[in-house]
Every structure is written in structure tokens, then in C-alpha cells.
């Protein structure tokens, strides 16, 4: 346990110190990584832990982003207000969509989440007067908290970093809690959990909603960071990207999605300097991981670590098998 606290404080210090020695460009990159890491972590709750593979997670990201953006433009840029708006709206959406999605599983779940996210997308696309349609929303005012405006990107970075750490810590406790253990149980063998007396649908529904709400929060943060939202942030390619992040990082682990988000964002930035064939690269990287490293970056790290310090194996670490997700 102490080890965990040490690591956590180390990360905290690193995040806090980063602006003092990194140029602004890298700080922005780091902000983006952290936002997408939150987004990936949210998907991971339902996909990595509860075993529900979704291809429509962008719906929540978009809902959060647009909710925060629209409220900031038309009502108030107060952060408590916009963040709460994003949370409430994604909560409602997850609540409704979840009701339907809980009726199906496997590929059908994948398809149904995709369908709902495309419905959200077409709504965003059509509702010109609110969302700006295909042009998106721009010129969104910076978030304000207790009279303080997060107009400087370093401040926005600190805000994102703080929320990231809170969410990461919260989710870590969640997945290790009795509740989280039940989600893992459902992923591995839902029949057994039912015969143990668990109402598995309820737990899955709860996971779906938690996942959706945190996804919505990451969307809101994205709005604070970018000041601009495009409908492509709700499109299914966004869902695909976050799915790739989770899987490349390592589903069913806490560090995996964060590493995945970091890798994909960094890769995209590097690649963009040379070619616009980004999807080609992303697809190839993903294929390589699917075939050769099914347990993701986290798995690779774990293996190397185990080779280094063979005698001291951590019994808590559960390697996640791809086919069982």
C-alpha cells in the first residue's frame, strides 16, 4: 500500500512540476493526454473491468463537451455550473442508453452502443441553433471558478491534472472495492455471479453509468482546454480511437489506458510532422498490438518488470486475457 502512495505522490509532483521545465507546447500536449486518459479510463471501467466492449463511447464525451460548451456560451462560464451540466446530461444519457444496452451482450452490445452514439452524432449535426452543426462550437469562454478565470493554458493544465488525479485515485479504489471485484467477476463469468446471488444487470448498469459520467467529464475538460468543439468529437471514429487507446495500453488495468492515451497522442503528434497518413499508422500500430501484444503496453511492462525482479512477484497483479474481456 505504501508503495502505491509513494508512486501516486511522485506522479502528483511530476504533474505539478511539469510547467516549470517544459515548454508550453508540451504542456498542451500533456493536457490533451490527461483528458484522453480520463476518457480512456472511463471506457475501461465498462470494457476492461465489466467486459462490455462499446463502440459508442464518444457519445458521452461529446455530450459532456457540448453541454459544457453550450452552457458556457449561453449562460455562465462558472466551472461548477458547466461541469455539473456535463455530468448531469451524460448521467441522463447513460441512464437511458444503458437501459436499452443492458438487454443485449457481446456483438449486439457493440452495435447498440454504436447506434446510440450515431444517434447522438446526427442530433448534434442537425441541431444547428445549439451546436453549430457541422461548424462546431467555437469561442467558448474559459472556465471561471470563484471569480478566477482559467484563461492561461498552464492554469487549465493544472485544473486538468488535478481532476485527472482525483478520478484516477477514485477509480483505483472503485476497481479494488467489493463493487469493482464484482465487475471483474461479471467479465469472467456472468452466469456464476448470478448463481452467487448477484443481480448482474444492476452492476453492469451501474458500471455503464459511471463510465458514461466520467466520459462526459472528460468531454467537458476538453472544452475547457480547447475552447472549441467539432461534431467529429462525437463521431464513431472518436469511439474507435478511445477503444484503441484502452486496448493498446492494456484493458482491465489502471495504468494501461493512461499509457495508451499517452502513446496514441504522442504518436499522432510525431506522425503529423511527417505525413497525414495518420489512420494508416494508427491502424498498423493497433494491428501489431492485437496480434503480438494482446495485453497491451501494461502487459509488456509487466513482463519486463517480472523478468528483472523475478523473485518478487506481486500477487495482486492479474494478467488480463484478451479473449475474456
Amino acid at each position: 500500500m505504501n508503495n502505491t502512495y509513494v508512486k501516486f505522490i511522485a506522479v502528483l509532483v511530476l504533474i505539478a512540476a511539469a510547467p516549470f521545465f517544459l515548454p508550453l507546447f508540451h504542456i498542451n500536449l500533456l493536457s490533451e493526454i490527461l483528458i484522453l486518459a480520463i476518457f480512456a479510463l472511463s471506457l475501461n471501467v465498462m470494457m476492461g473491468y465489466a467486459g462490455m466492449v462499446s463502440l459508442g463511447h464518444a457519445a458521452f464525451f461529446g455530450t459532456g463537451a457540448y453541454a459544457a460548451g453550450i452552457m458556457a456560451q449561453n449562460a455562465s462560464a462558472n466551472m461548477i455550473f458547466t461541469l455539473a451540466g456535463a455530468v448531469v446530461l451524460s448521467l441522463v444519457l447513460a441512464g437511458i442508453v444503458g437501459l436499452f444496452c443492458m438487454k443485449v451482450s457481446g456483438f449486439y452490445f457493440l452495435m447498440l452502443t454504436l447506434a446510440f452514439s450515431q444517434m447522438v452524432y446526427s442530433f448534434v449535426y442537425q441541431a444547428n441553433q445549439w451546436t453549430g452543426g457541422s461548424n462546431g462550437l467555437s469561442g467558448i469562454p474559459s472556465p471561471v471558478l470563484f471569480g478566477f478565470s482559467f484563461s492561461n493554458s498552464v492554469w487549465v493544465y493544472y485544473l486538468i491534472g488535478l481532476i485527472f488525479l482525483l478520478i484516477f485515485a477514485g477509480l483505483r479504489v472503485l476497481v479494488k472495492s467489493p463493487f469493482g471485484q464484482i465487475l471483474i467477476g461479471i467479465r469472467e463469468n456472468e452466469t456464476r455471479l448470478k448463481s452467487m446471488g448477484y443481480n448482474t444487470s444492476m452492476y453492469k448498469y451501474a458500471a455503464f453509468i459511471i463510465s458514461g459520467v466520467i466520459g462526459g467529464m472528460s468531454g467537458a475538460l476538453y472544452t475547457y482546454f480547447n475552447g472549441f468543439i467539432a461534431p467529429s468529437d462525437v463521431y464513431w471514429t472518436m469511439s474507435g480511437t478511445v477503444l484503441i487507446m484502452v486496448l493498446v495500453g492494456g484493458a482491465g488495468t489502471m495504468t494501461g489506458p493512461v499509457l495508451g492515451a499517452a502513446l496514441i497522442v504522442l504518436l499522432e503528434t510525431v506522425v503529423a510532422a511527417y505525413t497525414d497518413m495518420w489512420m494508416l499508422i494508427l491502424g498498423s500500430v493497433f494491428i501489431i498490438f492485437v496480434i503480438f501484444f494482446p495485453s497491451g503496453i501494461h502487459g509488456i511492462l509487466q513482463d519486463t518488470l517480472n523478468k528483472w525482479q523475478k523473485p518478487k512477484l506481486n500477487p495482486d497483479v492479474k494478467s488480463v486475457k484478451r479473449e475474456q474481456i
Binding site: 500500500m1 479504489v173 472503485l174 479494488k176 472495492s177 467489493p178 463493487f179 469493482g180 471485484q181 452467487m196
Partner: peptide
């Protein structure tokens, strides 16, 4: 872990999400 999943329901702590199970 298999056993704990059975027992934690009996102990009525299954909905606890804010406390690490150790």
C-alpha cells in the same frame, strides 16, 4: 478471490465502492 465474491454478498458489502477490499 472466487470465495470472497461469494462471501462479500453474504456480508452485505457488495455495493461498497469507496473502500479497497483488503
Amino acid at each position: 478471490d472466487n470465495l470472497l465474491l461469494v462471501l462479500q454478498r453474504k456480508h452485505g458489502i457488495s455495493r461498497t465502492w469507496f473502500k479497497i477490499r483488503n
